[in-house]
């Protein structure tokens, strides 16, 4: 009993995450394409929200592992949202966190068993990071913020969009790292004999630096867009004023 009280009084991880990332609230767009669009472009999990960072860096040193990780997260995120939403009226709010974690852990275990059966080499390469999908902040946060308050189908597509965004982000980081760091794509060399791979990029430091540079790049693109939009609005307002004067 006392445990329950403590869990509900303390700030739960998902709430804390929701508090950190200000705009990270339930989506207002209810159309399915809107939800997917939101996930892929509007609130892209890795770059805009900067959540779930651990896996994004660790397994992006080759295209194959990035893809495998991205697909696994896509699967888990979509279905955890779906099941959370289906069970949302039966879960006691006091124990909702453990309940969500159980749903997610079950899906991750399914993913793990599937990978070890059909792609043993990839399973070895992903190692402990595949199991750690359980604690990805983004999955728990989507369950808490969106799936627990919406119907199953919109919830599924919210997870679907977010997961797709995550997959794209993984590839955006993974492709340049493999190309520059080992001079190959999908394991095949692409630069010919003379190319000296920059080993650092596929080692740990390269991951941090690549992501740092991408964050800077995406933010400056975002800022430039924002400025262009503001300028357009200003011009529009100016036109309206002139019309009034006339």
């Amino acid at each position: 009993m006392s445990e329950n009280q403590e869990t509900s009084s303390a700030l739960s991880p998902a709430e804390q995450i929701a508090a950190i990332s200000g705009p990270f609230r339930g989506s207002k767009q209810t159309t399915l394409s809107g939800l997917i669009d939101d996930g892929v472009f509007g609130k892209n999990p890795v770059f805009v929200l900067a959540l779930s960072l651990c896996p994004a860096v660790a397994v992006t040193n080759s295209v194959q592992t990035s893809l495998a990780m991205g697909l696994s997260v896509w699967f888990v995120l979509s279905f955890s949202n779906l099941f959370t939403s289906i069970f949302r009226n039966y879960i006691n709010p006091k124990v909702r966190m453990p309940a969500y974690i159980l749903i997610i852990a079950t899906l991750v275990t399914m993913c793990e068993l599937f990978m070890s059966a059909f792609f043993p080499v990839l399973y070895q390469a992903l190692g402990v990071y595949l199991k750690l999908i359980v604690v990805f902040a983004i999955i728990l946060a989507r369950a808490e913020v969106f799936a627990s308050k919406n119907k199953p189908i919109p919830a599924f597509f919210d997870g679907f969009g977010m997961g797709l965004g995550f997959l794209i982000a993984m590839l955006v980081i993974g492709v340049p790292r493999e190309v520059v760091g080992s001079g190959s794509f999908w394991g095949r060399p692409i630069f010919g004999e003379g190319y000296q791979p920059i080993l650092m990029i596929i080692l740990a430091p390269g991951g941090f630096i690549t992501i740092g540079l991408f964050i800077g790049l995406f933010r400056s693109i975002g800022a430039a867009r924002e400025r262009a939009r503001a300028a357009a609005r200003l011009e529009g307002a100016g036109d309206a004023m002139e019309v009034k004067r006339v």
């Binding site: 992501i211 740092g212 964050i215 800077g216 400056s220």
Partner: peptide, 11 residues
């Protein structure tokens, strides 16, 4: 400007 916060922290 665009590296403030998380960007520079990563580098």
């Amino acid at each position: 400007e665009s590296f403030k916060g998380l960007g520079i922290a990563f580098v």
